[in-house]
């Protein structure tokens, strides 16, 4: 019986298919066990890469879309051009209805400020205003960095051939005050001088007037009150007016 038992169980064998399947599956499982570190690091690396991309993206976005200088162009329309540290135009702001319309008509976003200034100064709107005797004031505000002087020099060169144009650099403190009053930087300069003669003169009135009208008003007030010295609003900047600078030149042209 012992032998019969042995012979009976001897005839029980694992099939070759079962052995092959077992071998394949065990080896696959072993392979999977050998790669746990890679399996764990893969998503971690992917997550880190995503975070890096997000951080770089946000950092780049912040760097790109933070203005370092503002070019204020006033003639009526009044327009401000935000420039980033790369010298690219990142925003345009109109400071009255005409200014908003003018800003909407321009396609200078993300261009170099040089190209943008050229396009703006040579636009029909500005050229027509100048031909009609308007006065163009370009003020450069340096918010951070040392780009302001370079921009002012470029704008001065661009406008050197024009009459009735002034170009200056103003401080960020004055720029802050200008925005507080709802004026563009260029208009704020002249508004501050007029307000020294006429304390009732309001920023809203200044906003509605062209630069020519403001300069004419200032000239008439200066003539009426020669004893009063207007505040030196552009003293902190590197005034580089050419052609008609502040308070002189073609002030009474119209």
């Amino acid at each position: 019986m012992d032998n019969r038992m042995r012979k009976a169980f001897d005839q029980v064998h694992a099939s070759q298919e079962l052995k092959a399947r077992t071998r394949t599956q065990v080896l696959q499982a072993m392979e999977a066990q050998r790669k746990p570190a890679r399996a764990v690091w893969k998503p971690v690396c992917a997550l880190a890469a995503c975070l890096l991309v997000v951080v770089l993206g946000l950092g780049g976005y912040h760097l790109y879309f933070t203005p370092t200088s503002v070019i204020s162009i006033d003639i009526n329309p009044s327009l401000e051009v935000d420039v980033n540290r790369l010298g690219r135009v990142i925003a345009l702001h109109g400071y009255n209805e005409d200014g908003e319309e003018f800003a909407a008509s321009l396609d200078v976003l993300h261009q170099n400020y040089q190209q943008a200034v050229d396009e703006i100064l040579n636009s029909d709107t500005i050229v027509d205003c100048l031909n009609e005797g308007g006065f163009l004031s370009v003020s450069v505000v340096e918010l951070r960095g040392s780009q302001g002087e370079e921009i002012t020099t470029y704008v001065s060169n661009c406008t050197s051939g024009h009459h009735n144009v002034s170009c200056s650099t103003i401080s960020s403190q004055e720029a802050h005050e200008a925005h507080h009053l709802g004026l563009s930087y260029g208009k704020y300069e002249i508004y501050a001088q007029i307000a020294a003669y006429d304390p009732d003169f309001t920023p809203e009135e200044a906003n509605e007037m062209t630069m020519r009208e403001l300069r004419d008003l200032l000239a008439s007030l200066q003539a009426e009150h020669p004893d009063i010295t207007p505040p030196p609003v552009d003293e902190t900047g590197s005034g580089c007016g050419n052609g008609s600078g502040h308070g002189h030149g073609n002030g009474n042209h119209e």
Binding site: R4, M5, A8, F9, H13
Partner: peptide, 10 residues
Amino acid sequence: PEVEDHSEVL
């Protein structure tokens, strides 16, 4: 399938 003889023992 594997058992030919002695199936009564099994």
